[in-house]
């Protein structure tokens, strides 16, 4: 089964199966990785599912919309490869994608 690799805040990496149609946020929370709070449940409203995407995979993802951009702008930890995991819907061809969970904004 295709999978994504997710690194939590302690540096531990997990391989998570891709169920097409789910978001990266769902995949990470369903895998039991507690670091990703995802407080709003995927409404693009809270920025607590902030992840960094490996650079060469960024272009494969759906483009960022204004709401996501605005929320990420409030994070102290935004980088060029920042995305909100709730806005990334997974497909089989995302097999091998690597993401790491960004530090928590206070």
């Amino acid at each position: 089964m295709p999978h994504v690799h997710v690194t939590d805040r302690s540096g531990e990496e997990s391989a998570i199966d891709i169920r097409p149609g789910t978001t990266l946020m769902q995949a990470i929370t369903d895998a039991g990785i507690a670091d990703l709070l995802a407080l709003c449940g995927g409404q693009c409203s809270c920025a607590t599912c902030h992840v960094y995407i490996q650079d060469d995979a960024l272009a494969e993802l759906s483009p960022m919309e204004q709401d996501e951009d605005d929320l990420l702008a409030c994070s102290s930890y935004r980088k060029a490869n920042s995305r909100l995991a709730c806005q990334l819907r997974l497909r089989d061809d995302h097999d091998g994608l690597r993401a790491s969970i960004a530090p928590e904004d206070l």
């Binding site: 407080l39 409203s45 809270c46």
Partner: peptide
């Protein structure tokens, strides 16, 4: 405080919270 679960948590978190 933002981690309270008045709107639930996880895949069924209240969509109308915002």
């Amino acid at each position: 405080i933002k981690q309270h679960i008045a709107f639930g948590r996880g895949s069924h978190t209240c969509a109308g919270a915002p």
